[in-house]
Nucleic acid binder design. Structure first.
Length: 300
DNA sequence: TCCCAGGGCATCA
DNA sequence: TGATGCCATGGG
C-alpha cells in the first residue's frame, strides 16, 4: 500500500549531503536513525505519535508517514518542526556573501555550501542537552542522553525497533536524584536538569515566553538566572532553539580550537581577538560558530 | 598517568 | 572583576 507523503519545496541553498553529514557524525544519537538519503524520526502532535522518513534532496524534502495516516494538523505541525530543525527558512547566500570578505573563512562558502544550521526546536531538549554536555566529551554526552531518553522518554515500536521522544518537563520534574542512578550524570547536573524541568512545568520558563522578551540580552538574562545555566548554555540554547543569529557560546572548547586553527585567536584566553572577529560579522555569529564546528571534522 | 572534553558554581582576594 | 578549585568520567 502506498504510504502518504508530504512534499516540502526548498527555495534556498540546501545541500542534502551536508545536512546528512551533520546528522551522521558518528555519535550514538538516540532520537533519530539515518538511512540512505534521509533520516527517520518519531514525532508527536497532540496525541498522534508518528514515525516519519524524511527524504532529503537539494531542492525538496519528502516526508513519508510510516505508521499511520496523519491528521492535517499533525502534518502542518511536524512539517513546521522539521523546517525549524533543519533551518529551511534561512537564506545562506547572504551569509556566504558576508564571509567572502575574510580570506581565513571565505572557503567555507564553497566547502560547506548548503549546510544548514541544524537546530533543536524544543527549547527544553536544547537546554537539557547543553547541561548534559557541559565539560564532557561528545561521545560520552550522547551515551548519557541515550540513557536518559530510553529510561524516561515516550516511545513507539515500529517493525521491532524502538523510537523515542525526548522526555517532557512533566516527566523529568517529578524525579529525584535516585531515579538517575547509574546514568553517570554528576549530582550537580541532575539537580540542574530537574530544576530546568520544574521551570518549564510551572510555566516560569517557556520558548514562547522567551520569544516575547525584547532582545537577546533579556533572554540570556532570563536563562542564566536559573542554576546550572551559564553564558555558554544560554547562548547555545538560543542559537540552536530560538535561532538567535547573534549568539556565540564563548569558551566553547570546539569553537576555541577552530578559532585557533584559523589564526583568529593567538591562544585560548585571547577573548579580545575573538570578540573583534565576531564584531565584523554581526547577524551571522551563530552561523559562523556552526561552520567553525563543521571545520573541526575532516572533509567527507 | 596526564590532559582535554561543545561548563558552571562557590569561594576568595 | 578575575582567578582558582572542584565536580565527574571517558578517551586519547
Amino acid at each position: 500500500m502506498e504510504r502518504p507523503k508530504t512534499e516540502i519545496t526548498l527555495n534556498g541553498t540546501f545541500t542534502a549531503s551536508e545536512c546528512l553529514w551533520f546528522l551522521n557524525r558518528g555519535y550514538d544519537e538516540c532520537l533519530y536513525r539515518l538511512f540512505s538519503g534521509g533520516v527517520r524520526r518519531l514525532f508527536k502532535s497532540g496525541s498522534e505519535l508518528l514515525i516519519v522518513d524524511i527524504h532529503l534532496y537539494d531542492d525538496k524534502i519528502i516526508l513519508e508517514w510510516l505508521n499511520a495516516v496523519p491528521s492535517g494538523k499533525a502534518v502542518a505541525e511536524i512539517a513546521e518542526t522539521i523546517s525549524e530543525w533543519l533551518d529551511l527558512e534561512t537564506d545562506l547566500e547572504v551569509f556566504y556573501l558576508a564571509i567572502s570578505a575574510d580570506p581565513r573563512i571565505a572557503y567555507m562558502a564553497t566547502e560547506f555550501s548548503g549546510l544548514p544550521l541544524i537546530g533543536i526546536p524544543d527549547l527544553f531538549e536544547a537546554l537539557c542537552w547543553a547541561i548534559i554536555g557541559q565539560q564532557i566529551n561528545l561521545s560520552f554526552a550522547y551515551k548519557i542522553k541515550r540513557r536518559l531518553v530510553e529510561r524516561f522518554g515516550e516511545s513507539l515500536v515500529f517493525r521491532g525497533e524502538h523510537y523515542y521522544l525526548f522526555p517532557s518537563p512533566a516527566e523529568l520534574s517529578t524525579l529525584t536524584s535516585l531515579d538517575f542512578a547509574h546514568m553517570q550524570l554528576s549530582e550537580s547536573k541532575i539537580t540542574y536538569l530537574i530544576r530546568v524541568a520544574e521551570s518549564f512545568r510551572s510555566g516560569e520558563l517557556s520558548k514562547a515566553g522567551l520569544m516575547k522578551l525584547n532582545d537577546t540580552h533579556s533572554r540570556i538574562s532570563a536563562l542564566v538566572s536559573i542554576k546550572g545555566i551559564g553564558q555558554w548554555t544560554a547562548n547555545y540554547a538560543l542559537m540552536k532553539s530560538l535561532r538567535e543569529r547573534s549568539c556565540i557560546p564563548y569558551r566553547d572548547a570546539g569553537l576555541l580550537n577552530a578559532l585557533l586553527s584559523h589564526g583568529i585567536i593567538s591562544d585560548k584566553t585571547d577573548q579580545r581577538s575573538a570578540e573583534d572577529f565576531f564584531a565584523e560579522f554581526k547577524g551571522f555569529e551563530a552561523h559562523l560558530v556552526f561552520y567553525f564546528w563543521r571545520s573541526l571534522s575532516p572533509k567527507r
